[in-house]
Design a protein around this nucleic acid. Structure first.
Lengths: 226, 226
DNA sequence: GTCTATAGACGGATAGAC
DNA sequence: GTCTATCCGTCTATAGAC
């Protein structure tokens, strides 16, 4: 089901990263042994420690390889939006597209392993493994800061707590969008699946914007402080 | 951070279930050993195998203990809605409330461990551990079938594929709602958190309904077949 | 039902030859 | 850089005394 990268990397280091990425999606971090990884990568057991130092360091390397680029792209998109606007507040829909669109764009790339990685990322969002959480929080700090700030500025009349929660809800919807429909619907009588990845982005985007623009709950209006 | 049930269960079996539930949330299934569980439960290492047979069976018991009741409540709510409507199509908002409201209601219960369990469930949604997935798919089969059917009937003009995806997106938003704001926002400069659990349900509900009612993406209208 | 002790498999990591 | 061999810790599960 999970497609491996079509071209096998020549470099041992890259083969290990590819294999680890794929196996982590399927079995989680703790469920994937170094023997499984090196076996799938056609590498020696000792190669992981030689190239990365430890299993934990390998996990970090798997994330860093793609996450840094993704977040840089997100920030670049936001920079471009802000430059085009020239000081005026941005359209919320553009902000949402810049954040979630880039992620889904990477998730649509089955050729270079982007899809596998984004499934791993979606899975990891919910895991609370101590050091992975810490690591992701650091990798995301600037991005969440910038994007939340942009949303606060774009929606000055909406309480910040509401924006924060809706951003969180949107992230959850995106995570499930990337994970795909498999799993809980397997046994349900569903023939209308249609998991064409081309359609996923517009599907998700209209849902997210509908949620973001929804009327505020009464309590939020009553208790608004900022 | 994670509150233990205030009253310690007398029964060894229940103490094991409580401890396992809590530790699974924090460390995942593979990251939680039977020694950790029995240690936290003040029980002997051999007690898990005596009472449940195996670790896998314990995992299933943890889910079954609460999930069966949750899904029964969901189906009862849907039955009630359908009885009240007397054959007429239901309001989508009522269907959404019956499914997601019950879950959040259980998640708000910090007294009897409901909150801990729902966090575990939210975390597990994204995990693809083979036998847990299979088990959950079976537990959910009837519920997803009934609720999706109700939504299809309530929104006959919307392509079924769109409804299915939006239900999936809503589930993702709910999972993140239950997981809370911790994690990725820890390092962001956020003082506007406000994680009052009383406000979570209306917050999530207006977001979900906004997403469900959002205009359909163009591709869905063009390619609509049912 | 509860306990100790242990079997037997597997985990990550490393030393040292090539 | 790659490999074999191995250390040592932890895992689940179970046998058998109480």
């Amino acid at each position: 089901m999970t497609a491996a990268p079509p071209t096998v990397a020549h470099d041992t280091r890259d083969r290990i990263l590819d294999a680890a990425e794929r196996l982590f999606v399927e079995h989680g971090f703790d469920g994937t042994s170094m023997r499984m990884i090196t076996g799938a990568a056609n590498a020696n057991l000792a190669a992981v420690n030689y190239h990365f130092g430890s299993k934990d360091a390998l996990v970090q390397a798997v994330f860093r390889r793609r996450l840094t680029a993704l977040n840089r792209e997100r920030l670049a998109e936001l920079d471009r939006l802000e430059a085009d606007a020239g000081g005026a507040p941005l359209k919320p829909s553009r902000i949402v597209e810049a954040f979630f669109g880039t992620a889904l764009h990477m998730a649509a790339d089955t050729e270079h392993g982007g899809r596998t990685f984004m499934r791993l990322l979606a899975r990891t969002y919910n895991e609370s493994n101590a050091f992975v959480r810490q690591f992701l929080a650091e990798e995301y700090a600037e991005v969440t800061d910038r994007f939340l700030g942009a949303l606060f500025a774009a929606l000055p009349e909406v309480p910040r707590a509401e924006i924060l929660w809706r951003f969180h809800f949107m992230t959850g919807a995106m995570a499930f969008a990337i994970s795909g429909l498999g799993g809980l619907y397997e046994l349900a009588d569903i023939s209308a699946a249609d998991d064409n990845p081309q359609r996923l982005l517009p599907r998700l985007m209209s849902f997210l914007l509908g949620g973001l623009r929804a009327p505020l709950p009464d309590a939020a209006l009553a208790g608004a402080r900022n």
